[in-house]
Amino acid sequence: MGCWLSKQVKHTPGYEEPAVLAAETAFTVSEVEALYELFRKISYSIFKDGLIHKEEFQLALFKNSKKNNLFADRIFDLFDLKRNGVIDFGEFVRSLSVFHPNTAQDEKIAFAFRLYDLRSTGFIEREELKEMVLALLNESELCLSDDLVETIVDQTCKLVDSNSDGKIDPIEWKEFVRKNPSLLKNMTLPYLKDITMAFPSFVMSSEVDDEVLD
């Protein structure tokens, strides 16, 4: 315990105590400390200011800082809880927690809804759905006729939009996901269970108080 004052570690801006983050999320304190190793790696990859910028996020995801992708953009925006254009450590941990295998389905369903609600209107509109389908087709180098895309979008809207008001609300979305649980596959990252072994350096610098006697 004597070393508490002796080593004043300089933390990244927006750093929060691992114990606080662990209490709020699905992670243990150790997992939060391991995530800090990962966070520092990403947030010092280009701008070296301890905050994750869009380019750094893209570099981590695609090994290419210039590769734009509609969905990666959306995820970045949702991670950026304070909406200031960068992801700090607290935002990083809280957002990744949604992807933890132990996190409740409802939280994942809500996150996915916000992801697809491109213009944050509280509804997934038909146009948004079409825009996203086109983005994926583009990404996959698939050119489909406009008619075909319209058909796909129409069919899906018919399936989801049970009150036929031309847009998807959170309740309709939840109902649809319950019937199609595979839609949530992207919302769970098995890697998060392995995180302490993937970034083991934290064991040396841990600042967690000892709770167990020797």
Binding site: L61, N69, F71, I75, A135, Q155, T156, F176, N186, I195
Partner: peptide, 22 residues
């Protein structure tokens, strides 16, 4: 596939890249 299935195939959703080499 329905439209949401199609969307969810995007590589932009695959956050595993954060954790290990692709």
């Amino acid at each position: 596939l329905n439209a949401f299935d199609i969307i969810s195939l995007s590589s932009g959703f695959d956050l595993s890249g954060l954790f290990e080499a692709s």
